[in-house]
Design a protein around this nucleic acid. Structure first.
Lengths: 364, 364
DNA sequence: ATGAAAGCGCTAACAA
DNA sequence: TTGTTAGCGCTTTCAT
């Protein structure tokens, strides 16, 4: 069965007894082409659905200079199964939001892009451009250059979560404060005073802010967080987080509660605690940041969740708006007039936190 | 900054002092257009890279009647974060393989497609066609109709994992036998004789075969698997698998080993076992099928892994080959001449299995 | 070995 | 209100 040539607007026109221009006008009345009589409109629409006509997107793209594609440039590789769950979630929600608004999200990532020759970085950009996206979402870009190049070409872009502020694009970020405040309040209310912070060393302010928010919240309750209670690992991997947790939990006495600034660190802590036969939450409470693995673990982890769906949706909205605006030549507002959305985190209580067992006063 | 119009082949032609036809010939020499002198070839190529020219895919698609897109129709929704990890992995690998071969994978799923009106099924098909894919990968299609409609239109298709055999397409499936044989051999060698099978009720042979393979392997060792040692749940969810494990593990005495015919069932079992304070693997061994969550759990679960990367790659290869062949009008070989690949599973030993503790003879 | 010209399917000026 | 026409950027006969 050779691939049949698909129905074209010409066939619809012939069948409905009108011109191709009229078919187009009927189908695109949303774009301000309202000029057809109710009668022809109905006739065309009937023919369209009878013949199951769907416009050829390539022809539309060529004509409109609009690919209908939004590129999602995801952070480095997710080689491992669930290496970058946040990125994955963002992409999923973005794809959904894009589809609902008539666009197609495509993923551009070193992993997808790599052609085995290893020339990833330059290649990524070429691949990106070769797809002619109408807009680009950068999910935590590694370098400002990637973003800058896209902006230079004049493609609307928005950076998520960990933006490079020096590049003038719209941004959608998350404020860790609210969720972490609640988490700390929760722990303090339970009676915890001896805490351990597990996180990663990352120069980016967005990550730094997790620790800052944690520290500030504690300060508000007059609970100190000594440097020895802060363990920062270099890697965002299971192995790395296990190693981190192991070294942090070696020192006795154990804290009564752990704040893991990322689900992966909670997984690491859990592995080590299990090994040490320290039960959660009986002997030690655990709170994580991310809320992606959290519900799957045992016990289900109390966690600070990022509004990933909202981030993605807003990003798509902003992008589509920019794309729209780019059409109108009257857009004289240049420069720094970009949206900068900051969305709050929230706190989900599960089964990994409870009041500390009294181990005698002065302990910790 | 208004979006600059991109470079066209005409500009390359002018800059290099040749015609557009020649530029095209140089760029498409792979397609048998070898007709340019070495000298012009070099000149054109230089200009191309100097001006960073990338052909407009929409124009190419229009001209060649070839979108360069492969659709991945994924199984129902993955509402939850990691609801369908297998599907996710397949898609990831397929996207990678497609990219390496110059195609773009796009996801078509009810979730992405849904426009809030709820008319998912018909809409999905429309969306699929509207993208004009060169080929379609069905990841465990729910109904044969979906596939049949695509086949009727003449678009190359391949079904993965759980194909509808009555629809004539190529298939790439997985044989559970090998991995499960090894798993059973492993358990038997450790000394396990009292086993529990956790799985789901699914009429599809591919799922049924997990139980069959397990049973047959046990039979080979003369170990019986009574009906009471088979627990089948209706759902493939965390909640469902916890409920299943709970009811299955109520009956004393406990088995010495559990085979979970899916990682999610291992998660459920782990939750329940933790709750019962039964330590894995000390008190009970656990083996899973899937190997997706398995390495992340505590303890890391010994598991049967499916060759997901191979499945995806082979699917893409088959598809691309079919697409290629569809071009040549000489393709008279119609009908049932489709590839049917069956790939083996393999077995990964981690930390969730060990010899059973002796609880006295005659036990279990 | 190279160029001229047609046409893929669509939309938007412009005419009627 | 509708039709005619041009052209988006590309590839591919067919001439040369």
């Amino acid at each position: 069965m050779t691939k049949r040539r698909a129905i074209t607007s010409a066939e619809i026109a012939r069948e409905a007894g009108v011109s191709r221009a009229t078919v187009s006008a009927v189908l695109n009345e949303a774009r301000g082409n309202i000029r057809v009589s109710e009668d022809t409109r109905r006739r065309v629409l009937e023919t369209v659905s009878k013949l199951r006509y769907v416009p050829n997107p390539a022809a539309q793209a060529l004509r409109l200079n609009r690919s209908g594609v939004i590129a999602f440039v995801s952070r480095t590789m997710h080689k491992t199964a669930f290496g970058h769950p946040i990125s994955y979630q963002l992409q999923l929600h973005a794809a959904q939001a894009a589809a609902q608004r008539g666009s197609q999200l495509i993923e551009i990532s070193p992993e997808i892009t790599a052609d085995g020759t290893g020339n990833a970085s330059d290649d990524l950009f070429t691949v990106l451009l070769s797809r002619r996206p109408d807009g680009v979402i950068f999910d935590a870009p590694t370098t400002p250059d990637e973003v800058a190049r896209v902006v230079e070409i004049g493609i609307p872009a928005v950076q998520l979560i960990r933006p490079h502020r020096e590049v003038p694009t719209a941004t959608v970020t998350v404020d860790a404060t609210h969720g972490i405040d609640e988490a700390v309040e929760h722990l303090i209310a339970l009676g915890h005073r001896s805490l351990l912070f597990l996180g990663n060393v990352d120069p980016h302010p967005a990550n730094r802010s997790r620790l800052d928010a944690f520290r500030m919240a504690l300060t508000r309750y007059g609970v100190p967080l000594p440097e020895t209670a802060i363990a920062l690992g270099p890697e965002y991997t299971l192995e790395g987080s296990i190693a981190l947790a192991r070294s942090a939990l070696q020192r006795a006495p154990l804290p009564t509660a752990i704040f893991a600034a990322g689900d992966i660190f909670a997984v690491g802590a859990l592995h080590v605690l299990h090994g040490l036969q320290v039960r959660v939450p009986d002997a030690i409470s655990l709170v994580s940041y991310d809320d992606v693995y959290a519900p799957l673990l045992y016990p289900p982890i109390t966690s600070v969740a990022q509004p990933l769906r909202d981030v993605a949706q807003r990003a798509i909205d902003i992008l589509l708006q920019q794309i729209e605006r780019a059409d109108e030549p009257l857009a004289a507002d240049e420069g720094g007039a970009h949206a900068h959305l900051v969305l709050p985190t929230h706190f989900v209580i599960r089964s990994s936190t409870q009041a500390p067992q009294s181990r005698g006063p002065g302990d910790g």
